[in-house]
Simulated scan of single mutants.
Amino acid sequence: MLQVTDISVFFQKNTSNIPDDHFETPKKITVIESWTAIRKGKSAVIKGRLLGHPDYPDGVKMMTSTVHRYLAGDGHVYIKTQNSLYELGQPLKTTDFQKLERMTQ
């Protein structure tokens, strides 16, 4: 079972200077920005804002289903859920507790 801290540590070890204006990947994979990994029951999920999703407007808040695995390539980190593949953009700044509070309600 994946742990929340596993995802965050993996992200830190496998990203390379992703710019703040990173909105699109070469393969048009949906990006989750301002994300945080949280525990939901015994599983890890990601909460954040979508960018580049074909069915939702940019910036919409979302929560993934259970993260089954994560992988890295070319300085980018990806998560795989049951039906989707996402790229992780910039994580939520841990000092921004007000924003985190709003996202978890």
Rank of each mutant, 00 (worst) to 15 (best):
residue 1 M to D: 10
residue 1 M to G: 11
residue 1 M to E: 08
residue 2 L to W: 03
residue 2 L to T: 06
residue 2 L to I: 13
residue 3 Q to W: 06
residue 3 Q to D: 12
residue 5 T to F: 07
residue 5 T to R: 10
residue 6 D to I: 05
residue 7 I to S: 04
residue 7 I to V: 15
residue 8 S to F: 13
residue 9 V to A: 12
residue 10 F to M: 12
residue 10 F to R: 07
residue 12 Q to H: 14
residue 12 Q to N: 14
residue 12 Q to K: 13
residue 16 S to I: 05
residue 18 I to Y: 04
residue 19 P to C: 08
residue 19 P to Q: 05
residue 20 D to N: 14
residue 21 D to Y: 04
residue 22 H to I: 02
residue 22 H to Q: 08
residue 22 H to T: 08
residue 22 H to M: 11
residue 23 F to T: 06
residue 23 F to A: 06
residue 23 F to K: 12
residue 23 F to Q: 10
residue 25 T to P: 09
residue 26 P to Q: 07
residue 27 K to F: 07
residue 27 K to W: 10
residue 28 K to Q: 12
residue 28 K to W: 03
residue 28 K to D: 07
residue 29 I to G: 07
residue 30 T to D: 07
residue 30 T to N: 10
residue 32 I to H: 02
residue 33 E to N: 14
residue 33 E to C: 02
residue 35 W to L: 00
residue 35 W to F: 04
residue 36 T to H: 10
residue 36 T to L: 15
residue 37 A to S: 11
residue 37 A to R: 01
residue 38 I to A: 06
residue 39 R to E: 12
residue 39 R to L: 14
residue 39 R to T: 09
residue 39 R to A: 11
residue 39 R to W: 03
residue 40 K to E: 15
residue 41 G to D: 06
residue 41 G to A: 07
residue 41 G to W: 02
residue 42 K to W: 09
residue 43 S to H: 13
residue 45 V to L: 07
residue 45 V to M: 06
residue 46 I to C: 02
residue 48 G to K: 00
residue 51 L to F: 15
residue 52 G to R: 05
residue 52 G to M: 11
residue 52 G to T: 13
residue 53 H to F: 02
residue 57 P to Y: 09
residue 57 P to L: 07
residue 57 P to D: 12
residue 60 V to M: 14
residue 60 V to T: 15
residue 61 K to W: 11
residue 61 K to N: 11
residue 62 M to C: 14
residue 63 M to K: 04
residue 64 T to W: 00
residue 64 T to R: 02
residue 66 T to N: 15
residue 66 T to F: 07
residue 68 H to V: 07
residue 69 R to C: 15
residue 71 L to F: 15
residue 71 L to G: 05
residue 72 A to S: 15
residue 72 A to K: 05
residue 72 A to N: 05
residue 74 D to I: 03
residue 74 D to L: 09
residue 75 G to D: 10
residue 76 H to I: 10
residue 77 V to P: 01
residue 78 Y to L: 11
residue 78 Y to E: 09
residue 78 Y to I: 08
residue 79 I to G: 00
residue 79 I to T: 05
residue 79 I to K: 00
residue 79 I to D: 02
residue 79 I to V: 15
residue 80 K to A: 11
residue 80 K to V: 12
residue 80 K to T: 03
residue 81 T to E: 06
residue 82 Q to K: 14
residue 85 L to E: 08
residue 85 L to G: 02
residue 86 Y to K: 02
residue 86 Y to D: 00
residue 87 E to T: 09
residue 88 L to Y: 05
residue 89 G to K: 05
residue 90 Q to P: 00
residue 91 P to M: 10
residue 91 P to G: 06
residue 92 L to T: 00
residue 94 T to Q: 09
residue 97 F to H: 13
residue 97 F to A: 08
residue 97 F to G: 03
residue 98 Q to G: 08
residue 98 Q to H: 09
residue 100 L to G: 01
residue 101 E to S: 03
residue 101 E to Q: 08
residue 103 M to V: 01
residue 103 M to H: 01
residue 103 M to P: 00
residue 105 Q to N: 14
